[in-house]
């Protein structure tokens, strides 16, 4: 990928969100429950950033906003100097060609082999001859250690392997922004370690801006450059992994220590327990 078509220089943020608020609209068009409010964040080229927070804190929505899948009610989302939500359809698709996204469960095309899955973006967006596509696919699969599995169907491989195939597919076009949605969820310790190292090395090799949405604290703090903590749609803390570990903020401490008591409530808001059971006087 040529860098000259990019309006941002190396020290400018490749991804910048400013004052972003978002609520999923209802069918009638009115905004529904507020998911994000006033979120600011930035990611530079070659930087690996983690978005952490509990379930429902709005982490995945940030990835959807960056990919232009949903539109914010307020604020701007800039990727490579372009306002994602001001782009026309064709321009958005052109920008997406420079993004790679790893979905939580891989989202492999189940009617295609591992090889065809990785070849998919190459076949769709390039006119490369078959021999070149074959070489590129095998190189990408080799990078994730699955060159030998190229002929298998998605139903014949494990969840961890599917995630790695999806990673190979996400980097097929050498993206400049790679987004990972819960890349560690449900992985065994070996696959988890391998995936974490892959994410680190791939981002460095491609010089890409990388964003990991995760709640695997230890694994993520070991590989990322910067962390944003989200709670109830707001960024409540941010810093380098060392700053996060040293943080005295109750929310961060609770998250890093994984303790049930703290600012994050285990219980979904509910009426009085005794009253609910009919025991209240």
């Amino acid at each position: 990928m040529l860098m000259s078509d990019s309006p941002t220089s190396a020290d400018q943020p490749f991804v910048a969100m400013q004052g972003v608020s978002f609520a999923y609209p209802t069918l009638a068009g009115a905004p529904g429950r507020q998911i994000l409010s006033g979120v600011d964040l930035s990611v530079k080229r070659g930087q690996l950033v983690a978005l952490m927070g509990g379930s429902g804190s709005g982490k995945t929505t940030i990835l959807r906003l960056l990919g232009g899948q949903v539109k914010p009610q307020a604020g701007t989302v800039m990727v490579d100097g372009r306002n994602v939500h001001a782009l026309k359809h064709g321009e958005l698709f052109a920008l997406r060609r420079r993004m790679g996204m790893l979905f939580q469960f891989g989202a492999l095309f189940t009617d295609m082999s591992v090889f065809e899955n990785v070849a998919f973006p190459l076949r769709e967006h390039t006119d490369l001859p078959e021999a070149a596509i074959r070489d590129l696919v095998l190189m990408k699969l080799n990078a994730v250690g699955l060159r030998g599995a190229h002929a298998l169907m998605p139903s014949e491989i494990s969840g961890g392997m599917a995630r790695r195939v999806a990673l190979a597919r996400a980097i097929a076009l050498d993206p400049q922004l790679i987004m990972y949605d819960e890349p560690f969820a449900g992985l065994d310790p070996i696959s988890l370690g391998i995936t974490a190292n892959l994410i680190r090395s791939l981002g460095a090799a491609l010089g890409a801006a990388s964003i990991i949405v995760t709640h695997d604290v230890e694994e993520s703090l070991a590989i990322v450059d910067y962390v944003y903590f989200l709670a109830e749609g707001k960024i409540v803390a941010q810093g380098t992994p060392d700053e996060i570990r040293a943080s005295t903020m109750p929310y961060v401490q609770q998250f890093v220590a994984g303790s049930p008591d703290g600012p994050v409530r285990f219980h979904y808001p509910a009426p009085d327990y005794a009253a609910d059971l009919g025991l209240a006087k």
């Binding site: 698709f93 997406r96 989202a107 095309f109 769709e124």
Partner: peptide, 18 residues
Amino acid sequence: GLMKAGEQLTAMEMMAVS
């Protein structure tokens, strides 16, 4: 429907394929 449920259609969109 199953492609949608498996996020395959979203993945396609994110790969700039309609």
